[in-house]
């Protein structure tokens, strides 16, 4: 990861939401780690995924602690539960006046509903609420589909998006063109939604191939943290 891809936000709280499987967790975890390398502030990452039973950011909790990031998620046996558990530290970190907070929200409007319970706390806080968009997912492959998803999430969360993250990918089959196609869709969605496209993310090795292209959207490099058991950290996804 290079400084080139560092994206900074003035807001203390950055919330990643979006459709199921848009890659929110991968983006949130990578973002938290990059922030930790560029900021002196204490950083917390909140796993607010109450709809997904596997591949949640809590699985990367130990790794994040090595970067000095505080993971906030259900503890003990509840780590492995598929229950809507909201630990008290979540509200405390939102209401706090200091420290950076990254929130990884569960997928779709169902996953975002939990945010509405923090509405009063968030209302007075400084936050970015980012829609993570993967154009290769069934319900967000068109501008209208993406806008409907955004509207459903906003209604459910009782928060309005402040920006879009283009995270279009096909895991190990992602090409530079995949990312460019995703940016094109995200730009069209951003125009219709009247909010900015804040960055486009992709795996290190694919983003590197876009370096010399004249792309107006800031690029954000990811290294895969949420691996399948048969994948080595060093390699990209092997397809069966």
């Amino acid at each position: 990861m290079t400084d080139r891809s560092y994206i900074s936000f003035d807001k203390r709280i950055v919330i990643f939401a979006g459709a199921y499987g848009s890659g929110k967790t991968e983006v949130a975890v990578n973002y938290a780690i990059q922030l930790a390398q560029h900021s002196e502030d204490p950083i917390s990452i909140i796993d607010l995924d109450i709809v997904n039973p596997y591949f949640r950011s809590r699985e990367a909790a130990l790794e994040m602690e090595t970067y000095g990031i505080r993971p906030i998620n259900p503890l003990g046996e509840q780590t492995f539960a598929d229950l809507p558990i909201i630990v008290p530290q979540i509200r405390a970190s939102i209401e706090s006046s200091s420290g950076r907070v990254i929130i990884d929200v569960g997928g779709d409007d169902l996953g975002a509903r939990v945010l509405s319970s923090m509405h009063d706390a968030l209302e007075t806080a400084q936050y970015e609420f980012l829609m993570v968009l993967n154009a290769n997912r069934p319900f967000t492959s068109t501008v209208d589909g993406a806008l409907k998803m955004m509207h459903d999430i906003e209604t459910s969360a009782r928060l309005n998006f402040t920006g879009i993250v283009s995270n279009t990918h096909l895991i190990g089959e992602t090409t530079p063109q995949t990312i460019l196609d995703g940016i094109a869709l995200a730009q069209a969605v951003a125009v219709r939604a009247e909010i900015p496209l804040v960055f486009a993310s992709g795996m290190d090795e694919v983003i590197a191939k876009l370096e010399n292209k004249n792309i107006s959207t800031p690029l954000f490099s990811l290294s895969r943290r949420m691996l399948k058991p048969w994948e080595h950290a060093s390699s990209t996804a092997k397809n069966h």
Binding site: G21, N52, P53, Y54, N136, E173, A237, H240
Partner: peptide
């Protein structure tokens, strides 16, 4: 196994 249901692939 649960992984088949939960994992994402193209």
């Amino acid at each position: 196994d649960g992984m088949i249901g939960q994992m994402m692939e193209p």
